[in-house]
Each structure stands twice: as structure tokens, then as C-alpha cells.
Simulated scan of single mutants.
Amino acid sequence: MSEAQELLKNLNSNDLAEKKKSIFKIGDLKVKEAIPTLIQLLETDSDSVVRNSAARALGKIADPDQFDTILEALDKALEDPDSYVKANACWSLGKLKDKRAIPSLMKMVDPNQRSYAMVGDPKAQSNTKENEASAKLKEEGIKFSDIIVSAIKAIGNIKDPAGVPALIKGLEDEADGDVRCASAIALGKIGDGSAVLPLIERLKMDKYWYVRRDVAKALAKLKDPRAGPELAKKTNDMYDEVREHSVKALLAIGKPVSNILFKLYLADPKNLKLKKFVTTQLTRDEILQILENLVKNEKNESKRKIYQNYLDKIETQT
């Protein structure tokens, strides 16, 4: 008997540990013949870990010839009472990358999919949902946004602009920074221009540095010059990673924000990436024009003198 045949046999085993181990290995080995049984387990098995493992294995196998059947089963699994089954069904839908999953995934980007538990009481996770949790539980408990985050990541992997409204909704989720981070990264993957202004607003006001960092990463993907002014402000953020990724985003946007990049270069001439941009992407005439504008518009006298001196230096060069 081959290994695959042995694993298929174990799916019907009364030994629960053996069944779970076999499901995991079947997913890794992409045993297509197991798909009907995995779907049956996902729909009917009383053990939540078995259902959870089956949902994930279906995403790993992702047999194109059985997409319709797998998609239908995973879609149904989004109604499973167990949060881990739901989260892994979202993960697997993201692996399938089928646009038909978008409407169901969008429904999962919902605060009511969040649950709470007090420290030392993990069982409460499946019982205390967002709309049932007390103010005390929300403030003092542990948040579980696994379903929401998994759905957001799946939408990002599918890269269908139809999912953008749900991601913008996630970007505005004030209860959990992880949800906002996942939304920003997914919006960057999709690259739809309608996300630019919401991302700029989030960059402007989010209290968590890691959210600002991931928003900057998303804006680097979108390369929209409208983000330039706010990214420029974040090059002075108190956190290194926010500053670093804000500069990277500006460099990704490139020449449309050349005035901002040139100012950053003047402030930090030892920065090799900024220096490379100035020396390889800007002509002498463009630099002169930027400096003339800086001198004209700068209100700080000391900075204006610096710009003027640099302008005079460039003008005297042949």
C-alpha cells in the first residue's frame, strides 16, 4: 500500500490522533483523491480540530479540476461555529485565488466576527462576540480577530478590486491595529487607486507605529503622488521603521515627488538612496527649478538661505 493510500485509509480511522495527522500530511502532499473525504469531514465531523485541519488541507491541495466543489465547501465552512475553522476556510479561499469567493470573504470583514476572552479563559473566545462583549471585557480582555484578518489577507491574495470596500472598512477598524495592518497590506497588493485617500488618512492619524509603517508600505505599492506630503511628514516620525518606509514609498513614487525627495536629500546628503535618486533621476534644469521653488516658498529664513546657497552653487557650475 502506498503512502497516499495509507493516508486515505486513515481518514476514516477511529483513532482521532491518527486521523488528524493524516489530514495534515495529505494537505502537504497535495493528495487530490482525498478531496471528497476532506469535504465530508469539514461538513460533518464533530471534532473542530478535524474540521479545521480539513479546511486548511483543501486550500493546500487546491486542485483546479475540483475548484467548484472546494469553493462551495469552504464557503459553507464560513458558517462553522468554530472560529478556527472559519479562519482557515478564509485562508484556503485565499489560496484558491478565485474571485467568486470575494462576496463571502467581504462578509467576514465584520467586527462581529471578533471575539474576546479574559486572560486565563481561552474557552470564552468562541462565546463572547463583539456585539455581546461588555465594555470591561473589551478593555481588559484579549482580542481575537483571526477570522477578520484571515479574510482580509485572502482578499489581498485574490487581488480583486471588488474587495476594496471591505478592506477600507477594515482599515477604519479602531478596535484592532492588526486588522488595520492587514487591510493596508492587502490594499497595497490590489493596487486600486480608490484606496489612496483612505490610506493617507490612516497614515496621518493612526496611533500605532506598526500601522503607519504598513500603510507606508501600501502607498509604496500604489505610487500615487497625492501621498507625497503626508509621507514627507512621516520621514520625521519617532519610529525608525515608519521613517524608513516613508522614504521608500517616496522613492517608489519617484519624480512626481522630486521636490520632496530633493529636500530630504539636502537634509541627509549621506543617504545613498536619496543621493542616487538625485544624481540619476534629476537633470540639472530640474534641480534648478526645484531649488527656485524652495527658495520662493520656504518661510523659514535659515532653510531659505541653505536653499539659496545651494542654488547659487549649481548656477555657477558649468
Rank of each mutant, 00 (worst) to 15 (best):
V50S: 04
S104F: 05
L71Y: 12
A133C: 05
A17E: 15
A62I: 01
D80F: 00
T69V: 12
D121C: 10
L78F: 02
T37G: 05
K19A: 11
L41R: 02
I142P: 07
N12D: 15
R100V: 09
S126Q: 14
N112I: 10
M106E: 09
N131P: 01
W91M: 06
E132D: 13
Q113F: 00
S48W: 01
E18H: 08
L105Q: 02
P111L: 07
A101W: 02
N10P: 07
L41A: 04
K97H: 11
Q5C: 09
A54F: 04
K129L: 08
S53F: 00
V119I: 13
A55C: 06
E139N: 09
S22Y: 08
E18A: 11
P122A: 07
E130L: 14
L41I: 08
S104V: 08
A62E: 01
T37D: 15
E130D: 09
A55Y: 00
A124N: 11
A124L: 14
K30N: 11
A17H: 15
I61W: 01
Q113K: 07
D28W: 12
G94M: 14
K107M: 04
K60T: 04
K21D: 15
D45C: 07
V109C: 08
D80T: 04
K97W: 04
M108L: 14
S134E: 15
D63I: 13
R100I: 07
G94K: 07
A135S: 08
N14R: 08
I142F: 00
K138E: 07
L41T: 07
W91S: 04
D110T: 10
A17D: 14
L41N: 10
I102M: 07
P81Q: 10
L96N: 02
A57V: 10
M118P: 11
K32V: 13
I102N: 08
E6M: 12
W91I: 03
L42N: 06
L58Y: 00
S115L: 06
K99R: 05
D75T: 15
D68Q: 15
K32M: 06
E6Q: 14
K138D: 02
S53A: 01
S104Y: 05
P111M: 06
